[in-house]
C-alpha cells in the first residue's frame, strides 16, 4: 500500500509544472551559485560537493513544503475526507504522500548533478559509487518519514506556512548541506545532531567525497524512524480531534 500510494503521489506531483519547475530550476541556480563561490574561494576540487549540496538543499525544500502542506493540499483538492474515511490508519495513508515529496526531491539532485556535469564539466567521480545512490535513497526515505512528523505537526499549528517559510534556510545551514557544520557556532552542534537531515546530508557527502557512509546513514534512518513514530501518534491524534470537532474540511 505504501509503495502503490507513493507511486501514485509521485505521478501526481510530477504532473505539476510548478512543482517540477521549482524542483529542477531553483536547485540548479543554487548549484551555479555554489560553483562560482567554490571557484572564487579557491576550491575547484570541491565542485562535486557543491552540486551534491545544492541537490540536497532541493530535496529538503521539496520535503519541507510538500510534506508540511500535505494535509492542506489534500484539503484543497477535496480528497482529505476520502483519505480519512479509508479503513487504514491515517498515518499509513499520509506516509506515501510524504515519501512521494522526498522521491520528487531526487529531481533536484539529478538536476544539479547533470547541470554540473554538462555545463561545468564536473566529473562525477564519487568516492563510493555504489554507496552514493544507496545513501541518496536512504536520505530520501528518511526525509519522507520525517515529512510525516512535519505534516502532522504543521496541521496542529494555525500558521504552519510561516514556520515552513522559516525552516528552509536554517535546516540547510545547520545540517551542513553546503556549509560544513564545523564552520558554525558550537551551540548549533546539538541541534544538528538530532536532525535526520544532518545525518542524511553527511552520508550523501561522504559517499561523494569519501568517508564512512554507513554510520551516518544509519543515524539518519534511526532518527527518521523515531520521527515516523512520533508523527504516527500525532497524526492519529489530529485525525481523531478533527473528527470530534468536525473541523476536517476547515483550513
Amino acid at each position: 500500500m505504501i509503495a502503490v500510494g507513493a507511486l501514485l503521489h509521485v505521478k501526481q506531483l510530477s504532473r505539476s509544472p510548478f512543482e517540477i519547475a521549482i524542483a529542477l530550476f531553483v536547485p540548479v541556480v543554487q548549484a551555479t551559485l555554489a560553483v562560482y563561490l567554490f571557484r572564487a574561494g579557491g576550491e575547484p576540487d570541491r565542485l562535486l560537493e557543491a552540486a551534491v549540496g545544492a541537490g540536497l538543499m532541493g530535496v529538503w525544500s521539496t520535503v519541507l513544503f510538500g510534506s508540511g502542506g500535505a494535509i492542506q493540499s489534500q484539503r484543497w483538492q477535496g480528497t482529505l475526507e476520502m483519505i480519512m474515511l479509508a479503513p487504514r490508519s491515517p498515518a499509513l495513508v499520509l506516509l506515501p504522500v510524504t515519501l512521494a515529496t522526498g522521491i520528487t526531491g531526487t529531481y533536484a539532485m539529478l538536476a544539479t548533478l547533470a547541470w554540473g556535469r554538462l555545463l561545468y564539466g564536473i566529473p562525477l567521480d564519487f568516492a563510493h559509487p555504489v554507496a552514493f545512490p544507496v545513501a541518496v535513497a536512504g536520505c530520501i526515505a528518511g526525509l519522507g518519514m520525517f515529512g510525516l512528523l512535519l505534516a502532522s505537526s504543521f496541521v496542529l499549528l494555525r500558521h504552519a506556512n510561516a514556520l515552513a517559510n522559516m525552516l528552509e534556510y536554517p535546516i540547510w545551514l545547520v545540517s551542513g548541506m553546503l556549509v560544513p557544520v564545523t564552520a558554525l557556532p558550537g551551540w548549533t552542534g546539538p541541534v544538528a545532531a538530532v536532525l535526520p537531515t544532518t545525518w542524511g546530508a553527511r552520508a550523501v557527502h561522504e559517499a561523494a567525497a569519501g568517508g564512512p557512509v554507513w554510520p551516518a546513514l544509519g543515524g539518519c534512518l534511526a532518527i527518521s524512524l523515531a520521527c515516523l513514530a512520533v508523527g504516527w501518534v500525532l497524526m492519529t491524534y489530529v485525525e481523531r480531534r478533527a473528527r470530534v470537532a468536525a473541523t476536517l474540511a476547515l483550513a
Binding site: L37, G41, M166, L173, L178, V179, A183
Partner: peptide, 15 residues
C-alpha cells in the same frame, strides 16, 4: 536565516 546562511558560506570560503 537566509542572510546567516550566506554569511557563514562566505566565511567558510573566505571569498
Amino acid at each position: 536565516f537566509q542572510l546567516f546562511f550566506f554569511a557563514y558560506l562566505g566565511r567558510e570560503f573566505g571569498v
